[in-house]
Amino acid sequence: MTRIDYRTHTTLITGASSGLGAEFARRLAERGSNLVLVARRADLLEALAEELSSKHQITATAVPFDLTMPAPGEALAEELARRGITVTSLVNNAGFGTHAPFRQEDPDRIQKEISLNVAGLVDVTKAFIDQLTGVLVNVASTLGYQPWPNAAVYGASKAFVLSFTEALWQESRGSGLRVLALSPGPTRTEFFDVVGSEDMARGARMQTPGQVVATALDALDRRNPPPSVVSGAVNWLGTLISRFATRRRTVLAVGAITQRQTRTSRTGRAGTR
């Protein structure tokens, strides 16, 4: 495969108002791609679209949209068709996590988490995949490589994204479409603001959005891109636990890590009061 000329593409990015989504927008605009920026926060989307259009002489279109609605892919495709926009690359970045023992989770919050992380991602992918000729990037997580107590729903949703995307990678071979599951570890974004704590990352070295997006684009630039990539050598080593241990040992080991993170967090909060 030759390197992609993004100047011939229009890339749809979900969750584009901040964090990894905004970083994907900036990096792809630098490479000349036109953009469709999708998220709920219209003011941030419009400011980013204006910034990138002016700086890189590309067309960036802000489309405020709630991807937790039923059948978001069809509705989004209809909106873009109404505007005369044809998407040729897709970055499914929208998603959020919750962190608490499952018994304590809010049912409505869980439903929205599954709707966005799983159902929304699948529906948007289905709506656009037949017209994609460039790249399809689905943002998974290192938590998708093993069960993660106290983030059971989030980890399971990202395990789904990882498996789903790797299957699409195989199905798309020979079509010219490059499919990639990107698995970041802890990253300096608004993710932990939404979760409500940084317990999930306690003791971990966080990457920047720039480092994570560079990992994805470097993988897509390869002559033979892989089906998935983990951002950061330490994070990659952490995913190996599920490859060389039994399921029982894996979940017990991860459980010990999460318990230690929670104890450290509680001690830290008590010490700062």
Rank of each mutant, 00 (worst) to 15 (best):
T189A: 05
E198D: 15
G174P: 01
S115G: 11
P72W: 04
I85Y: 04
E171F: 12
Q207V: 10
S89D: 06
V139R: 09
I110Q: 07
L177P: 07
I110E: 02
F191C: 00
R202G: 06
S157K: 07
F128R: 10
I85V: 15
K158T: 04
R178N: 07
D123A: 03
S141L: 03
P147M: 09
K112M: 08
Q146H: 13
A100C: 10
K112Y: 01
A152Q: 03
E198I: 14
I129R: 14
L168W: 10
K158H: 01
A71C: 09
V122D: 09
R202Y: 12
L143T: 13
A100Y: 02
V194Y: 11
G97Y: 02
G174L: 08
K158G: 09
A167L: 11
E79C: 07
G176S: 02
G174C: 03
A167P: 02
L116G: 08
P72K: 03
A181H: 00
P107M: 02
T142N: 11
R178W: 10
T125F: 08
L90G: 05
R82N: 13
A167T: 14
L180M: 05
K126C: 11
H99C: 04
T125P: 03
L121Q: 05
A181S: 15
F191Q: 05
R205C: 12
G203H: 11
R82Y: 14
T88C: 06
A77N: 10
S175D: 09
N92A: 05
I85R: 04
V124A: 10
Y145S: 00
E105W: 10
L90Q: 00
P101E: 15
A75R: 14
L80V: 06
G155F: 05
L143D: 06
N138A: 08
S157A: 12
G73W: 06
D108H: 09
N117Y: 00
G176K: 04
H99S: 00
N92M: 09
L90D: 05
L136T: 02
V194A: 13
R202M: 12
Q207F: 01
A156M: 08
A71V: 04
N117K: 06
T88V: 13
R103W: 12
T98M: 14
T208F: 12
